[in-house]
């Protein structure tokens, strides 16, 4: 029997060599591609931002392109809206501040994560520039029941969040009449009350955590200036 040490290299030289070669190849691939991948991931999120801050009417048929910190919204009419995005973190939530190029904040988009009926729900919620109203909701990822809970990603459910007051927590209700009766009500999805409630809880928690800090920052930065009124209803 060979002593283990003596035969180590004669047994394993191929694996060591391949390991080095493959490792080198992976380093090369990674160095070349990682900036592209990071840009892809960011662009994917940024692309959603205008829809969460601007009213839907302004975005009908618009084409959204992302380059770096700039989002260009090309409307169907041909005019282009140039938005600047600033990224920061507030109260543990990712915050995107959207402003017309060189202007005051148009609105904010905050990312919130919380548990749904199945797995975590990861969503973006839009806040108006004056922090008074919610301006939109977008679900980044969810694994709710198909055809029931996953309706949270669709417009009929999301519309309850657009224009709702940001000053008080949202309330989930069960009848359409009740939901229409006052702002800040969210009509629960049929047979998916838990999913509906989860989304509202995440939005409430996110807004409650972020809003006071944003308000404090805004009043400190521009004590004389009132919050800019953006186009969101």
């Amino acid at each position: 029997m060979n002593p283990p040490r003596a035969s180590f290299f004669s047994q394993s030289w191929l694996i060591l060599l391949l390991g080095l070669l493959f490792g080198g190849a992976l380093v090369a691939v990674h160095t070349n591609l990682s900036p592209v991948i990071a840009a892809n991931q960011r662009a994917e999120t940024l692309r959603q931002l205008p829809g969460l801050v601007l009213p839907a009417a302004e975005l009908a048929g618009a084409e959204i392109t992302v380059s770096g910190d700039r989002i260009a919204v090309r409307r169907a009419s041909g005019e282009t809206l140039d938005l600047a995005v600033a990224e920061s973190e507030v109260a543990g939530h990712q915050l995107y501040t959207l402003a017309a190029a060189g202007g005051a904040p148009l609105g904010y988009v905050v990312r919130g994560i919380g548990s749904g009926y199945a797995d975590d729900i990861d969503l973006l919620v839009g806040l108006s520039g004056d922090l008074e109203r919610l301006t939109g909701l977008f679900v980044l990822s969810q694994k709710e029941t198909p055809a029931l809970g996953d309706e949270i990603t669709k417009e009929p459910f999301r519309r309850w969040f657009t224009g709702a007051p940001a000053t008080a927590p949202l309330v989930v209700v069960k009848s359409a009449a009740e939901a229409e009766s006052a702002p800040g009500r969210v009509l629960a999805l049929t047979a998916a009350t838990i999913s509906s409630r989860s989304v509202c809880d995440i939005v409430n928690a996110t807004v409650a955590a972020v809003r006071p800090q944003l308000a404090a920052a805004a009043s400190a930065a521009a004590p004389a200036e009132e919050g800019e009124t953006d186009g969101g209803r």
């Binding site: 029941t145 198909p146 055809a147 029931l148 049929t190 047979a191």
Partner: peptide, 8 residues
């Protein structure tokens, strides 16, 4: 056909 057989 979840929608056709849910409580609603």
């Amino acid at each position: 056909f979840a929608a056709s057989l849910a409580g609603g």
